Computed example of a mutant assay.
Amino acid sequence: MTQTHVQERTGVATVGGNPITLLGPEIKVGDKAPDFKVNKDLMTEVSLADYAGKIKLISVVPSVDTGTCDAQTRRFNVEADKLGDDVVILTISVDLPFAQSRFCGAAGIDKVITLSDYKNRSFGQAYGVLIKEIQLDQRAIFIVDADDTVRYVEYLTEMKNHPDYEAALSALKELV
């Protein structure tokens, strides 16, 4: 069996001030969005192609069960109403689909699509957000246009920090 080499990036992010290693490449504006496989529910996998022709705001959170992740998901759920049918907001974490579903039900999240990277961490490795030490995805925002070109990227350098919501939403509105 051939071992594939996964790029490791150090010195770019922390969890609680402690340095971590991110697995996968750093995605940049102008890159073609990498494909990925994540779970919509326990049995159903989806990929980038399932959202073809849509503008995608991909909100990456370590776990919906934390304050910052909760606030980030709620904020984008509120904004989703103002964006129209050409835009889809995907919140990706390694939480099990059951936990994501329970969280959305309790929080009234009904516009954001939650997807789970729990099975093979495909998204985390493709987008360079998989934390080697704890196998969670580091907080990040990616905006991908209808042609699957990356138009906005924000990698958070500290897990507990909030993303720049205004900058992300402004970049998104330029595409709508």
Rank of each mutant, 00 (worst) to 15 (best):
T2W: 03
Q3D: 11
E8T: 05
E8K: 15
T14Y: 09
T14C: 09
T14D: 05
G16Q: 14
N18C: 00
N18W: 05
P19D: 10
T21A: 05
G24C: 02
I27M: 08
I27L: 09
I27K: 07
K28F: 03
G30S: 07
D31A: 03
K32W: 05
K32R: 12
D35F: 03
K37W: 00
V38G: 14
V38R: 15
N39Q: 14
N39S: 12
N39R: 15
N39M: 10
D41E: 12
L42W: 12
M43V: 12
V46P: 13
L48E: 00
D50Q: 05
Y51M: 07
A52I: 01
G53H: 02
K54F: 00
I55T: 15
I55E: 03
I55R: 14
I58V: 15
S59A: 11
V61S: 07
V61R: 03
T66G: 01
C69T: 07
D70H: 14
A71I: 11
T73W: 01
T73P: 00
F76N: 10
F76I: 09
E79T: 05
A80Q: 13
A80D: 09
L83R: 05
L83P: 09
D85I: 01
V87I: 15
V88E: 12
I89V: 14
L90A: 07
T91F: 00
I92H: 08
V94S: 11
L96S: 14
L96W: 11
P97C: 08
Q100Y: 01
S101W: 03
R102E: 04
F103G: 09
C104F: 04
A106C: 02
A106G: 06
A107I: 09
D110H: 14
D110L: 04
D110V: 12
T114R: 07
T114G: 01
T114L: 10
S116P: 09
Y118N: 11
K119T: 11
N120H: 13
R121W: 04
F123W: 03
F123A: 12
G124N: 03
Q125W: 00
Y127F: 15
Y127A: 11
G128V: 13
V129E: 05
V129D: 06
L130K: 13
Q135P: 00
L136N: 03
R139N: 10
I141H: 01
I141R: 00
F142K: 10
F142W: 02
D145S: 06
D148N: 15
D148C: 02
T149E: 04
T149L: 13
V150K: 11
L156N: 05
T157C: 04
T157F: 08
M159A: 13
K160H: 07
N161I: 00
N161A: 09
H162F: 07
P163C: 05
D164L: 00
D164K: 00
Y165V: 01
E166K: 14
A167W: 06
S170A: 14
K173N: 11
E174W: 04
L175F: 12
L175M: 12
L175A: 10
